[in-house]
Design a protein around this nucleic acid. Sequence first.
DNA 1: CGTCAAATAT
DNA 2: CATATTTGAC
Length: 291
Amino acid sequence: MREDDSNWFSRWEEELPSPEELMPLSQTLISPPLAMAFDIRNTSHQQFPHLSPPPSSNPLPSPGNLPQPSSAEFADSGELGSGTAGEEPARTLKRPRLVWTPQLHKRFVDAVAHLGIKNAVPKTIMQLMSVDGLTRENVASHLQKYRLYLKRMQGLSAGGGGVGGGAVSADPATDHLFASSPVPPHFLHPAAARSSSDHYLPFVPVPAIQQQLAVAAAAAASHPQFHRQVGHFGSPPNGHFEVPFLSRQSQNVQRMGAPVHNLLPGYAEDMESANASGGRKVLTLFPTGED
DNA sequence: CGTCAAATAT
DNA sequence: CATATTTGAC
């Protein structure tokens, strides 16, 4: 029947890992110098992924306001190899593969939804996301894929005919990541385009849980050849990760001319990415501000 | 800058 | 081998 535009988010929200189970990083990394020495000397440069989403509120600038791409500030904290060994290759060096986690993608979708398909361009989305380390290319790339996903879904929901209770449910194998994030109904409505910008406000009944986006860095390198391409997100079996997490909350690179109102509802960013590529360097984000 | 296609890594 | 993400070109 009709699509529920008030059920999609409530459902995906449940898929979020338990935010209360994460973070408690008691044991920081192994010896900083040791771990780092191990990491960086691998193949490339292994930096510490830091995601810096808004602390409490989501500083999503008004859609009608075009933020300025002022120079990004860099806040290299000492988290890097204990002070002395601090290297700063995070400037013009090649960044590791960015792993789009469901949470990150959620931010992406939210930004796009608030911007509207018309204003949903890489630059704007990137700035709206306010994710430290995220680059325009990252967003552009993902946006491309996201568009394809939407297109697929449109064709499916339109041509497939309204099967009973089916609703939109693409194959999980076709796109697991996208399927994990709720797709605003407006995205599939080319004719439902509002006059100017259609910003919808999804109400996320999220508790007062403020979770910083965290990323997992591959630490242990055991097997040189081992690939696991399985998405294990949705519900942490034990909330037990073997990778050290680093949650970094930099001051924030937000320099938009707008006072930034809370357009986005309270988010509950969680982390849950465990990359353990045998002997490979897999990171999620990079501590660098580039506009 | 934005988008599409191909390349590469996982 | 398929998918995800990156890189290059337009």
